[in-house]
Write a protein that binds this DNA or RNA. Structure first.
Lengths: 278, 278
DNA sequence: CTTTGTGAAAACATTCACAGCC
DNA sequence: GGCTGTGAATGTTTTCACAAAG
């Protein structure tokens, strides 16, 4: 039910719980109640919990034992009301008038995010990015040991990268089953990505982090998140454009209502379906 | 205005327009009207427009000249209503009963995203990830030429990576101003990131893509997006946990509506502020 | 008849503001 | 006094469903 047909995968969107199918398939029972707990946490809040966890780890290393919602929120870059709301989804672990105990909060967030269990990771596509991912210290240190690497290139077969020998993509199914890989990272070019994805799924992998610029087709019980650098850049580009346009129109507006549209290119006059200049 | 204090930066969240500050600072004029156009496009829709653009480019290469909302939506992994709504934000460029002309749509989305102008990119931190980014073909091919690389390591000074010589981070301000860099990519470890960010901003960079696991402090007129691999993994982990838990509770619930709440822990009755069981 | 474009409704997420507890 | 936890209010995004257009 997660990440099926509609909804752009991972990366940017992050809205909608992705659980519409569950509601549809049993119209008799309104709310299954028992399986609500985890589902009840908004997708957006889950993402922030991961950020809080990192910030809390920092506090913990500095031997800070207690934080207020205000402090934690500031460090995480959110406002305190949102932080308290997010934490309320996982339970009440604060003390009124005092704040939260860092170690308790770390434990509860880890439990909620399922980090008490190790998730072994496979990286497919050992090019520039795959290399970087295989060597990325952030994975193992946070409970995500990289336990398999794959590439199409036979020359790489057996070559160790970051201490792990690369295997051929033909072995994906076998190796993933054997090592109980739960998370597959796709760092291949676009062409191979769907095929790789299919093999990962056949190997029992239920979560995929996709760096390839394609929309993957997966069964309903597989979760996909997408990181697309080009998309990120284009979103930034949009904001540059908006800012420049704002600045341009502000110039025209400040000096009273003379022409104002002087430096604006010709095709500018109809944007967004609204005629801006008569 | 964009990405200030509240709101987790980039990456996950992507909600809220981020323009609250603009509204606050001029309480006299209710809606400035002229600077509305681009702002009116929801953040989430902007991200999807970038995806549509990639899919459309694919169609274009296959010499497909016309697509319906249904086809395009399927290829982009969204539902057609959402796609049409998204496209409606940038104008009416379809033909009822027929569909959209691929080339027209590509042009309009590029214009909306500000891709008619080149954005030169600087990458800071030439480690594993920085290397991958410097060599990443997706940037230049999509109008984002990488025009500067920086690293702290003096040994790298002058060494070409992907054809571009690495410069020392001390030169960031100077080089960014000189080459009119608009987008800065931070691929350094956490420690250096804020300092690097400050220099990029001093060098006139108004958009930052941050791979370092820290929340950056920036002026209101700088846009930050964050890509955090550990966070992505943890979100996936959460979904694994939720699925397993669902499966476990489903075992207890399948056998008809006898007690039904049997295996539910005590704290279950109040979730999300609503009493689930009477 | 097919498909777009879009108001209106529903779902979702954030912020407010304050009761309740320490 | 200070801070958490949370209903209620507000704002945003998605979905529905259908009139308008070719």
């Amino acid at each position: 039910m997660t990440s099926h047909g509609d909804d752009v995968q991972g990366g940017e969107d992050r809205s909608g719980t992705g659980d519409r199918a569950a509601a549809k398939e049993s119209p008799d029972v309104e709310v299954p109640a028992a399986r609500e707990r985890a589902r009840a946490i908004p997708e957006a809040a889950v993402a922030r919990l991961a950020v809080y966890l990192r910030v809390l780890s920092g506090f913990d290393e500095e031997s800070v034992t207690t934080v207020s919602s205000e402090e934690l929120a500031a460090a995480a870059g959110v406002n305190s009301a949102k932080l308290r709301k997010d934490l309320s989804y996982i339970g009440s672990y604060g003390t009124r008038g005092v704040g939260y105990e860092v170690s308790v909060l770390i434990g509860q967030i880890e439990r909620t995010l399922g980090l008490t269990r190790k998730h072994s990771v496979a990286v497919v596509g050992i090019g520039n990015l795959g290399h970087a991912l295989a060597n990325y210290g952030g994975f193992p240190s946070r409970g995500f040991p990289v336990s398999a690497l794959f590439d199409l290139d036979p020359d790489l077969d057996g070559v160790p990268v970051g201490g792990i020998p690369v295997r051929h993509v033909d072995d994906i199914v076998e190796v993933c089953q054997e090592r109980e890989v739960t998370i597959g990272v796709i760092a291949t070019p676009a062409q191979g990505a769907q095929e790789v994805c299919d093999r990962l799924v056949a190997g029992g992998v239920s979560c995929i982090l996709n760096f390839a610029p394609v929309v993957l087709q997966v069964p309903d019980d597989v979760e996909v998140r997408k990181v697309d650098l080009a998309v990120e850049m284009q979103i930034l580009s949009f904001h540059v454009a908006r800012r420049q346009q704002d600045a341009a129109t502000a110039n025209g507006a400040d000096l009273g209502p003379l022409d104002g549209a002087g430096p604006v290119p010709a095709e500018m006059d109809s944007v967004n379906g609204m005629v801006v200049r008569p």
